[in-house]
Write a protein that binds this DNA or RNA. Structure first.
Lengths: 214, 214
DNA sequence: GCGCTAACTGTATAAAATAACAGCCAATCA
DNA sequence: TGATTGGCTGTTATTTTATACAGTTAGCGC
């Protein structure tokens, strides 16, 4: 019994791909809220109706009343095949307001083993600018990012503040969170998390630079 | 890196086994309530305290405030063996006087596609020290090296001077060759090539950093 | 234009799940 | 003997998550 994905809409295919990716990266299915965050939906019902549609077409099954009750028919995919032949997705231009992992943003795939990094890398992000220069992160570098929503002080994170995505050093003191650049030419960003939302998109777990020095 | 299960109690091992089993069978970690049902506990706190104990011993990690937030450390089942034959050799301690690519020095192999870099990488070299800090090369980084014996000014090279191997920026003026650090705390090395032999071992074509900052 | 569907926003609420607090009992160890 | 630890019961507050209901907008076929 195979799934016929030809009758899935483009968007539904993206949602399905995200579910696979979440299973791969997190080891468990996403919640409705996590789907919303990934795609930038503002209503949980957007995710809900997509999941219903996928379930109606047999692409997934939904367990009623259970947290993370999304299941893939034919069992849980082997943790290896999905990324193995394809490598890590390189996320390109992260346009403001857009979900970081939307398929449209996958610029290419790089033949890098996610297990090269620990915790494992979920995707690559191309750095623009020199705001983390003194941390050895230069313009054009690829950052290996592990998807997570929590961070500890001193870790370098991908953070989203009001539809703006940046890479900075994380530093929290109570409800105040500072995003520190590693370059005196740039100013820290401080956010009161009870006033402005701050979302951690991921944790830098590695770096890849390719090319000769300019 | 394996988890030392010898310091887990019998009951804790049973709980851990159940978590593995749930992940295998359901494709997601169990909730406290599901642990209770599986073991016949009448209080969710029974499961909670077992999970806390397992987390304290490093057998699992717990994500705070997340449904089914149990994770197995190290991401998931390791499969670093896959790329073993295909990856790039990582050259360890480059003993003075020895050819850099002697088999004895191959510390390990890293699952990296040589074609990720251009020109293609032939091996990886682990950087020691901070003499190239301002070029974004930090202590512990892996440099992707393309074997060549020639270099142009401004390129970062692996050079051997009198049985000493270093990574520096190449700069030639006539018969004088300077190896320039990218850190004001270090001094350039200048060599008169008609007096002292200087050998270029290779050209830096990329960089890989894995691990969290600090 | 009309009905239909996909793809959402926005609001609300109940159920599921986490996580804290206060205990009890038996075994082990100093 | 007292202190500590593992392994639980019982209760409850709070957060997370699922899911229902009521809309909006845009495109597509007729």
């Amino acid at each position: 019994m195979t799934i016929d994905t030809t009758d899935l809409t483009r968007r539904q295919q993206e949602i399905l791909a995200f579910i696979h990716q979440a299973l791969e990266a997190e080891g468990r299915p996403p919640t409705r809220a996590e789907v919303c965050r990934a795609f930038g939906f503002k209503s949980p019902n957007a995710a809900e109706s997509h999941l219903r549609a996928l379930a109606a077409k047999g692409a997934i099954t939904l367990e009623e009343g259970r947290a993370r009750g999304i299941r893939l028919p034919g069992g849980f995919p082997r943790r290896s095949d999905t990324f193995h032949d394809t490598g890590l997705p390189l996320i390109g231009h992260v346009a403001a307001g857009n979900p970081i992992l939307a398929i449209e943003h996958v610029e290419s795939r790089h033949p890098v083993d996610p297990a090269l990094f620990s915790p494992r890398a979920d995707y690559l992000l191309r750095v623009k600018g020199l705001s983390m220069r003194d941390a050895g992160i230069l313009d054009g570098d690829l950052l290996a990012i592990h998807r997570t929503e929590t961070a500890r002080n001193g870790q370098i994170v991908v953070a989203r503040v009001r539809d703006d995505v940046t890479v900075k050093t994380f530093s929290a003191r109570g409800r105040l969170v500072s995003l520190l650049p590693a370059n005196p030419d740039f100013d820290p960003i401080t956010v009161d998390t009870e006033i402005e939302p701050l979302a951690i998109e991921g944790l830098m777990v590695g770096l890849i630079r390719n090319g000769l020095p300019n």
